[in-house]
Amino acid sequence: MTGERTKGQSRLAALLFDPEARPDAGQIADLSALHGRFSVSNWSDEHAGIVELLHEGLTFDMGHLCPAQALHIDGLAHRVELPQGLDVDALCAVDLLPAPHLAGAGRLLPVLRVLADLLIDLTALPGLRAVAWCPARTVMSPAWFTEACGAWLAGGPFPALALTALFRGRDGGIASEGLAFLTGQEFALRPRPGVSPDQDARVAVRLTDWLVAHGRVDAPCDALLPGGGAVRIEPDDNDTLLVRCR
């Protein structure tokens, strides 16, 4: 890495700071020395604001560090466990993406697990206000991200509200955003009359976990969701899975 990023690379995650708190490469190196779980494997030009981080044998580029030009990420639509008055649009982002030699591998679960683990370490950076997951346009508190992804890395379910997003559709059902980054498809869970929104939300979370584990669905099928009951899944022509509870 020479201080320039390869064209076509897509950021996956971002750490959001107040403008005056954006870290520099030296602070990342200090955190690496303190924790010892990741290392700064390439730091060629401090003014470029880019370092390469090595964690569990994989490398990731971290960019827009101070003193490089600040980055603002627009369109973060799904807020999770953030203070009501926090103006996310006013925050400056330090972003992460797979290093160029991992091009095309950023959607693989083993790579995402390593990145999530690295991000948990990076939440110790002073002044961090929020963590963003860009494919789902999700922004969340650092503590919530650590809890959700930490449980996943410890063998729990996929963190559906961290690495994807779930939201209410116009029909009152629940739809996903960002799942297509992993499987090529989003889903729309049809509402059930007389059923509480919390019950449907639990089904949606368990459905996300099932779809991440099973991958793309190209033909109608039934799935039994642990703790969520049985659902019927039917793909349409727009890469959306229409789902109803059985």
Rank of each mutant, 00 (worst) to 15 (best):
T183P: 01
C66R: 08
L109R: 11
Q185S: 01
L76D: 05
G3T: 06
I174G: 00
A175L: 08
L211P: 00
H64M: 04
D30R: 12
G49D: 07
L122K: 01
P110E: 06
S176T: 02
L125P: 04
V217M: 06
G150N: 06
E52S: 15
A160R: 12
D45P: 12
A204N: 03
V243Y: 05
P110F: 02
D236R: 10
N238P: 01
L119I: 15
V88L: 03
H47G: 08
A90G: 10
A148F: 02
P100M: 10
T6A: 11
G184R: 03
D200V: 00
V94N: 05
D237R: 04
D95H: 15
H64P: 00
C149Q: 06
D87V: 09
G172L: 09
G184L: 09
A13I: 13
R129T: 10
R190V: 00
R244Y: 04
L166D: 03
D117K: 12
P19C: 03
T208P: 07
A165T: 09
R170T: 09
A105S: 09
G172P: 03
V40R: 07
R170H: 13
D209P: 13
R137C: 07
A124G: 10
G150K: 02
E20N: 07
P83D: 14
L112C: 08
D222Y: 12
P83Y: 15
H78K: 05
A165C: 11
A99C: 13
G169N: 11
P220A: 05
L31D: 14
L109G: 02
L71N: 13
P126L: 07
A219R: 04
D198I: 08
V243E: 06
R202V: 01
V139N: 01
L189G: 01
L58I: 09
R5K: 04
P98M: 04
A77W: 02
C66F: 13
T183V: 03
A162Q: 04
P191Y: 09
E147Y: 14
A201P: 00
G3Y: 10
D87F: 02
H101F: 12
R22M: 06
V131K: 09
M1I: 09
S196P: 00
G169K: 07
E186R: 01
R202M: 06
H35N: 10
D61I: 03
F167D: 14
R137K: 14
Q69F: 09
D121V: 04
M140Y: 06
H72M: 11
R79T: 11
P142C: 15
A136T: 02
W210A: 04
A68S: 15
L65V: 04
L58M: 15
P67T: 06
D18P: 04
S44G: 12
Q185Y: 05
V80M: 05
A77R: 13
A188R: 03
L108M: 14
E234D: 15
P159C: 09
D30H: 10
G106V: 02
T208L: 12
S41A: 15
L166M: 10
V131T: 07
E52Y: 08
T138G: 07
R129G: 13
T2Y: 13
P197M: 01
S10W: 04
V212Q: 08
D171T: 06
Q199F: 01
G85Q: 07
L31P: 13
